[in-house]
Amino acid sequence: MKQRVASLGMYDHGPQQAANDRLWNEIARILGARGIKGVPRHLDRSRTVQTLWHDPDLLFGQICGFPLISDPSLKLRVLATPVYDTPASGLGLHRSFLVARHDDAPTLPAYRGRAAAINGTDSNTGMNLFRAIVAPLADGGRFFGTVLQTGSHRESVAAIVRGDADIAAIDSVTFAAVKRDSPEQIDALRILATTAESATPPFVTSRATPIEAVAALRLALAQVVADPGLAAARDALFLRDIITGGTERYAPLRSLEIEAVVAGYPELL
């Protein structure tokens, strides 16, 4: 059988990589023990997560909630929603912090005409939640002077610290990871506001994945989140639990987009 693909690229920086490898090794072992064929030995870090989301051979991955419900070309099945143990996270929900340099203006309205950073136009925490909180302040469909796409939340933080941008929305899980790994960057920032809450990025598989493999994946997730031998790996990822369910948890993200459009602010500008 053709070998499938696995990815945990949403939160996979620094010490998170070793933790993700440890979790995947155990998931792969469980799948193999249940007779699932084509299980990859290693996580794929050679391609972007966006590319992997479109791969029909994706056995296991994690996706941002906004493209999950807004991109009709994606053919994915939700396996479970992770529960992260970080400030502003819990019960399968998280938020974004609007951050700026510590010595800059303390309120969001003061950033009219300034430079914003986003990790990507399809990001829920970096763009969609950001747009929702800015929409009431926009005038003529615009609020910021420029919007810089950085490619990742961590790069958005770095852009603010360097002075290339003035404000960004950083998801609470990444914020906690940067605070742990690079505390000097967080020390250089101030939190201006906190966005609405939304469901955390779900674990997914291709819709082409056989149902027996889907069942085995859900069983494996339940086992790795409860295994005391994996406590250190889970702690490195802030992973506390998982919640079963489907795409219905992510429908409110489309509502935020619609509300911004109705308010005359369809794009973060």
Rank of each mutant, 00 (worst) to 15 (best):
W24D: 07
A80Y: 01
A138Y: 01
T194D: 05
A105W: 02
R240Y: 09
T205Y: 04
L59E: 02
A80E: 00
D12A: 15
L256A: 08
H54A: 15
A115P: 00
I160P: 06
T247D: 10
L137Y: 15
P15E: 14
A132G: 11
D166E: 14
I211Q: 14
K179P: 00
P106D: 12
G141I: 06
I191E: 08
E267A: 14
A236H: 08
V134I: 15
A213Q: 02
I243V: 06
F60W: 01
S96C: 10
P109I: 04
V261H: 10
R254K: 14
A193R: 12
A236G: 13
L76Y: 10
R154L: 11
L68W: 03
Q50C: 00
G151M: 03
D85R: 13
G163I: 02
K179V: 02
P136C: 06
H153Y: 03
A33P: 00
P82M: 02
Q223T: 13
A215L: 12
G246V: 03
I36Y: 04
A216Q: 10
H13Q: 12
F203D: 00
R249D: 09
G264P: 06
I36F: 01
S156Y: 04
G140E: 03
T107G: 00
A231E: 15
A100N: 03
A199C: 07
A193S: 13
I191M: 07
A158D: 11
P106A: 12
S70L: 08
L59M: 15
F66Q: 10
P106G: 01
V99K: 08
F97K: 11
N128G: 03
L221K: 05
D139W: 00
G14T: 07
D104R: 12
L269C: 07
I69K: 11
A159C: 09
I63C: 11
R249P: 01
H42S: 13
E26P: 02
V157C: 04
V225R: 08
N124V: 03
I243F: 02
I258Q: 15
L58E: 06
L268T: 06
R95Q: 14
L129F: 12
T81I: 13
N124R: 11
S73L: 10
E212A: 09
S152Q: 00
V261E: 14
S123Y: 01
A19C: 11
D227W: 06
P106M: 05
G246S: 05
A176W: 10
E155D: 10
T86F: 10
R240E: 15
D103M: 10
D85I: 01
I63M: 09
L192V: 13
A232V: 13
Q185P: 01
V204I: 14
Y11K: 04
S198F: 08
S172Y: 05
A216F: 03
F175H: 12
I160R: 01
L256W: 10
G61I: 05
V5H: 00
H13K: 11
D166N: 12
H94E: 05
R254Y: 12
T209W: 05
P72I: 12
E259D: 15
D103S: 14
G151T: 04
K75S: 15
V262R: 09
S46W: 02
I27V: 14
E212H: 14
A208I: 00
N20M: 07
V173D: 09
Q50R: 13
A236L: 06
F144L: 06
I133C: 11
R29A: 14
